[in-house]
Design a protein around this nucleic acid. Structure first.
Lengths: 209, 209
DNA sequence: AAATGTGAAACGCTTCACAGCC
DNA sequence: GGCTGTGAAGCGTTTCACATTT
């Protein structure tokens, strides 16, 4: 495969290309030019070609890209095709929505357990996933190993929960709580803060005059 | 206030600073240096100061920033303090989680109505928000004006729903569906694609050796 | 003495433009 | 003729480093 320093934003766009190629494949298209795929993704065509060039040559000059082949390549680059086991921290509204999101298991992302501290939620089963008390994390993880922890707790609890995940050897964290998680460099943390998105939209709407 | 070209990423970070200042304020802190606030947010301190400098001078040399004052300034910059009325498109799992997310109304973001095409969902009331059939969008918006549309439909429906929002004069769209929305330049669209986040995390986990 | 505010340098991503290939 | 792949130029963001202020 390829070189070393892959911009994070390139990885982001690869996933975006994959999503778009999936759509085009469903629509029965077979060949596409960088120009057209880029337009579909809202990026510049040179950018798309450059992103791909980090990983190899997947097109045919004068012709374009085979949609199924390119999708296969991108999936391989992203490490799709394997399964990822995850634990959910916080079985509130957002957490339960994630448990029910069909897209995730289809792409190999599977929740093996959920955790909360609200007695009312503990013992429930949401979409086949059992909700345990937080203090059972260690043994549940021994029983059902997982690589990814998804944090959907209130902001106040997020850091503590992250520390617990890291202690229990979780290597990747996806944090939906509106705080920044502090973590050692060998743990990968992705943040998704909905509140920031709303604020950003509001800012630009205000500027619209 | 300030100049013209504000990088989108600066706006993103302003909201991040606001979130962090809110936390610090709750903890009872009063004064903070750019160094410490930056660490708390996971950014470089020069960056933080530069971000703020687009909008004015809010600190005291030799001292630092007053947390409540800085928070007030950032909120004003972001246009917080006013109310934003929103419609939700798609009352599925994610949509309902958004309707129940307490953070949003606290920050002035209020859903006036939700829309779906599933007869089973239409007529329900989720957290005081009524779910209408999609074809009632126009008159509901006349009755309850809104500036923001939040799309939480399946990918297939997202573009169509966005077009409908734009026809009905919605100026800001927050799209949670895993497709890129095409839109005229006078409409502001923010994307939040969960599937891409999971893919990105998986990519970096694979690289971890 | 300490910490901000900010030109200027450094850096990294984006876009151009064209050679190379079908 | 058309489209990819890519070195190089362009551009925007990040970081440095220090003058400035309290």
């Amino acid at each position: 495969m390829a070189g070393f320093k892959i911009p994070g934003i390139t990885v982001y766009r690869l996933a975006l290309y994959a999503r778009t190629l999936e759509k085009l494949l469903e629509e029965g298209k077979d060949i596409i030019s960088s120009e057209e795929l880029a337009r579909e993704c809202g990026v510049n065509s040179a950018q798309l070609r450059k992103d791909l060039s980090y990983f190899g040559q997947f097109g045919v000059r004068g012709v374009g890209y085979s949609i199924p082949a390119l999708l296969r390549h991108i999936r391989r680059i992203l490490g799709a095709g394997r399964e990822w086991f995850m634990v959910l921290m916080g079985a509130g509204h957002l957490g339960q929505a994630l448990l029910k999101y069909e897209f995730l298991p289809k792409r190999g992302f599977k929740f093996v357990a959920a955790f909360d501290i609200d007695e009312e939620k503990i013992g429930r089963v949401v979409n086949d996933v059992y909700v345990y008390h937080l203090n059972q994390l260690s043994w549940v993880l021994r029983e059902h190993p997982a690589e990814i922890g998804v944090i959907a707790t209130p902001a106040k609890a997020a850091q503590e929960v992250a520390d617990l995940l890291i202690e229990n050897n979780i290597k990747g964290i996806l944090n939906f709580a509106p705080v920044r998680i502090k973590h050692p460099p060998n743990v990968i943390v992705e943040h998704s803060d909905l509140t920031i998105l709303f604020d950003k939209l509001a800012f630009y709407l205000n500027r619209l005059d």
